[in-house]
Write a protein that binds this DNA or RNA. Structure first.
Lengths: 164, 164
DNA sequence: CAAAACCAGTTGTAGATACAACGAATTGCT
DNA sequence: AGCAATTCGTTGTATCTACAACTGGTTTTG
């Protein structure tokens, strides 16, 4: 770790070259802002004793689906989790009574995860807390225009990841 | 789950009320874009058999510190992880020889995590892959102006989380 | 129609994280 | 100096996740 090594090191640092530099810096900001905001919001949710984000995501996906039900693999795709992980996540939520699993009559392999009344109730009680967290730790710090730009830009990032 | 329940349900959906709506939609875009981009980049890193992001973060933080060393709690703060988690993460990285732990001569409780030559080498071989991933899955999809806005806006989000 | 290929969901295993409780060391107060 | 409070890092425990192998059901194909 001598002088020379340090000098060469500059070449790979995130803060490095010309135009790319700003994108890399923005990437780091993106990562840390995400981590920090998520942490705050999860803490708010835990303190209010409502659903954690992972459960909320599952139940909201079901809520938004036709008949409030989805096949397991559809659900896995909707919330960006592996099928294996989803099996256990859904099992936990089912154990809490917030959704139920029903066999698909048209496909013996398949299961539907279905939102229960209790699950809907949990969504309702969680949302105000979640919305408050989003506002306090995210939305409140952005101008209307920034919200617009951010949404539009990140949609392209998302679309690219979905395709590639 | 009758008609009435559905109608009331609209009230708590993320796509809901006036001005707040756009911020909530942007929040969801923010979350999913982050998850999708991270997943792609982690996959690139794994395929290239270089460091995963969590290790990279630790080693980069050390690299950027004076003498390439940091106390454990400083490191924990720098990469947004709990101390308990850091203990094990650092243990794994140390086992791989990419950093070493040295007692702090000035404080018997404290340890320094120090970047090793091998760790520096790993950082160097990882960065091109990482940079490629950032460009492909993030930077490439944004205009200069969007990068600017995004960085500026998310810095405020980050700062707020750091304070509050 | 039977065998192969494929697909859905689960499970074994390993790894990683958070929270809280702990032991060791330091600091501050009197 | 001496004791209480604080800080540092680790560890016990519980949760949670991913990956790959596996079971059972479905579709394809010769």
């Amino acid at each position: 770790m001598d002088e020379k090594a340090d000098k060469e090191g500059e070449e790979f640092k995130v803060v490095s070259e010309g135009l790319e530099q700003k994108r890399n810096v923005a990437w780091r900001t993106f990562l840390t802002a995400h981590a920090a905001a998520i942490e705050k919001i999860e803490r708010d949710l835990a303190e209010a004793e409502v659903l954690p984000l992972s459960w909320y995501d599952v139940l909201l996906a079901l809520y938004e689906a036709p008949d409030h039900k989805l096949r397991m693999h559809e659900l896995a795709g909707a919330i960006l989790v592996t099928r294996g992980g989803l099996t256990r996540l859904v099992a936990r939520i089912e154990r809490a009574g917030l959704l139920s699993r029903e066999p698909d009559p048209d496909d013996g392999r398949g299961l539907h995860a279905v939102l229960t009344g209790e699950g809907l109730e949990s969504l309702r009680s969680t949302w105000p807390v979640y919305a408050g967290g989003i506002a306090e730790h995210f939305g409140h710090h952005l101008t209307d225009e920034e919200v617009e730009v951010l949404d539009r830009a990140l949609r392209r990032v998302l679309a690219a990841a979905r395709e590639g």
